[in-house]
Each structure stands twice: as C-alpha cells, then as structure tokens.
Simulated assay, not measured.
Amino acid sequence: MKTITTAVAALFALSTAVAADEVCMNASEMQSSLIDWYGERPVEGPSANNTRLWVSDATGSWTLVRTTDEGKACVAAQGRNWNASMDASDVLSEIAENTES
C-alpha cells in the first residue's frame, strides 16, 4: 500500500492543474484526441462531478477530463507519472483531496 500511496503522491506532484487556460472541446473530439495523440484510454467511469481519468500505460501520461452538461470536455488536470500498477480510484481520490478549495 505504501508503494501505491507514494506513486499517487508522485503522480499528483507532477500534475499540472489547468485553470485559466483550460482546454475545452466537443467531448467526442477530446476522446479522439486522447486516444489518437496520447494513446490514452479511460480507466474510470464519470464520477459525481462528471470527471473521467484517461491513462497511457505505454507513455505514462494521464489526463483528468471534466464533461459539461452542454457536451464539452475540458482538461481538469494532466501529468506524466502514470504506471499500470496504480489504482485509478486511489489516484482520483488523491487528486480530489489536493484540488478541493
């Protein structure tokens, strides 16, 4: 468990929270971009706040995407420290804990 906690902490430390320069586009375009450009795949279904974690085991990149009611998808956070042994639920919890106001 300590290894996962350490990995999650490192993942969050290397994340880039997107604020003022938030990248948003049509949700289907975002999905295609994450798959085609970054080789990412979704690992968690939408959470209560319509976010989904996308990851690439090959490159270590990850993207947290928030989908709006209007069908737009916006990058909420991103990073480059994902690995296949990480638990997506733990990562989402850690990101939520560290980004709440």
Rank of each mutant, 00 (worst) to 15 (best):
D69L: 12
A84H: 11
A77N: 04
G79E: 03
L92H: 01
E94I: 01
A27D: 06
A73G: 08
C24I: 06
D69K: 09
E70I: 05
R52T: 15
E100N: 12
D87C: 05
S89T: 08
A7M: 08
G60S: 02
R52K: 14
T59W: 06
A76W: 07
L64K: 00
R80G: 14
A19T: 09
D21F: 05
F12L: 11
N26G: 09
M1Q: 14
D90Q: 12
L92Q: 07
F12R: 07
M86W: 08
G71E: 07
A96R: 15
N83V: 13
Q78N: 10
I35L: 10
E40C: 15
V8H: 11
A20C: 04
D21N: 11
Q31M: 11
W37Y: 13
E94N: 02
Q31T: 15
P42Q: 15
K2E: 14
V55E: 03
E100L: 11
A19R: 07
W54I: 01
S33F: 08
L14T: 13
V23N: 07
M30C: 05
A13Q: 14
D36G: 01
W82V: 00
D69V: 08
W62E: 02
Y38F: 12
G71N: 04
L11G: 13
T51D: 12
S101A: 15
R80N: 12
R52C: 15
S15H: 08
L92I: 06
S89G: 12
S33T: 09
D57Y: 03
A76T: 03
A76V: 10
V65S: 02
C24Y: 08
D21T: 08
I95P: 01
R52D: 02
Q31W: 01
A19Y: 10
A88D: 02
G79D: 04
G71I: 03
S101Q: 09
T63W: 05
R80K: 14
D90Y: 15
T99L: 11
T6E: 12
S93N: 03
W82E: 00
Q31V: 15
N83P: 03
G60A: 06
T16P: 05
A76Q: 10
R66S: 03
V43K: 08
S47N: 13
N81L: 13
G39Y: 00
M86I: 05
E100C: 07
R41Q: 12
D57N: 03
R41H: 09
T67E: 08
E40R: 04
T63P: 00
L11Y: 04
T99C: 07
S85T: 15
D21S: 11
N83T: 13
T67V: 14
A58N: 04
V55A: 14
L92Y: 00
S89M: 07
A48L: 12
N50R: 13
E97R: 11
K72C: 03
Q31D: 13
R41Y: 10
F12A: 05
L53I: 05
T99D: 01
R80F: 06
T59Q: 00
T16E: 13
E100R: 13
A84E: 10
L34Q: 06
A10S: 13
S28L: 08
T59H: 05
A7W: 04
C24D: 00
G45M: 02
G45L: 13
R66L: 06
E97M: 10
V18H: 02
M1P: 06
